[in-house]
Amino acid sequence: MNAPLSAAGVRYVAKNMRLDLRLIAEMVAPGSRVLDIGCGDGTLLDHLYRTRGCDARGIEIDMAEVTRAVTHGLPVMHGDADSDLAQYPDGAFDYVILSRTLQAVERPREVLRQMLRIGERAIVSFPNFAHWPLRWQLLWRGRMPMTSVWSRPWYETPNIHPCTIRDFFVLCGEEGYRVERWLAVDDAGQRSPWRRFVGLANLFGEQALFLLRKV
C-alpha cells in the first residue's frame, strides 16, 4: 500500500516527527477536520494545520504536555480517550487519530467505537506485539519482552492492552470496520518487501497503522 507522495516541504517539516506521525499525516486529506487523541505536545496538530490546512484539535492526558501545546497556540484540551470521546456529537470530525495509545486505554474496543461514531474515519497506530524480537524473547528467555518500544517492565507499563496486527484485523472484522488502508513498518521505518502479507507484516512489523471506516 503506497502512501501518497507529499510535497518536498512537507517532508522537510515532517523530518523530525515520529515515524508513525509522519505516516499518519500522509493519510489525512487536506482541509479536513481532525481530532488527535493523545496528541502529546501537538506536533501532529501543528503539522496538519501548517502543511494541510486542517482544523486539527487534540486531547491529551498529561497536563504538562497540554500546557506546552496550548502555549504554542494549539487547540488542545486535557482529557482522556476513555471518558471524553462520548461527549462529542456524531460525525464531528473527518478523521479521529489515535497514535500509539490504543494499547494504553482502559477499553480499546469502546474507544474505537467512539472514534468511528464521532469521526468519518479513524486512524490508529500501535506497536505490534507479534514483532519477532518480542516473540523470540518470550520463547527463548521465558520473560516478558523488553525492547526500545516496549521499554517498561511488566509491573509498571501503562500498556495494559497490547495486541498484534492479526488481533487488530480480527477486531475490525468483528466490529464491522472496513480497513481502507493498512501498513506495517519495521524498526528502520521500511515498509517493503513484506508489506502486503499479513503474516509477514505481523512478524517483521514493529508498528502498524490502520485507516478505518464503518462499513
Partner: peptide, 20 residues
Amino acid sequence: RAVARALNRAAANVSFVEIN
C-alpha cells in the same frame, strides 16, 4: 471541565488547561 465537555458536545474549538 464541565464547560469544556459542553463545548465538546457543541463541537467547538476548545483548549483546556489546569494550571498547577
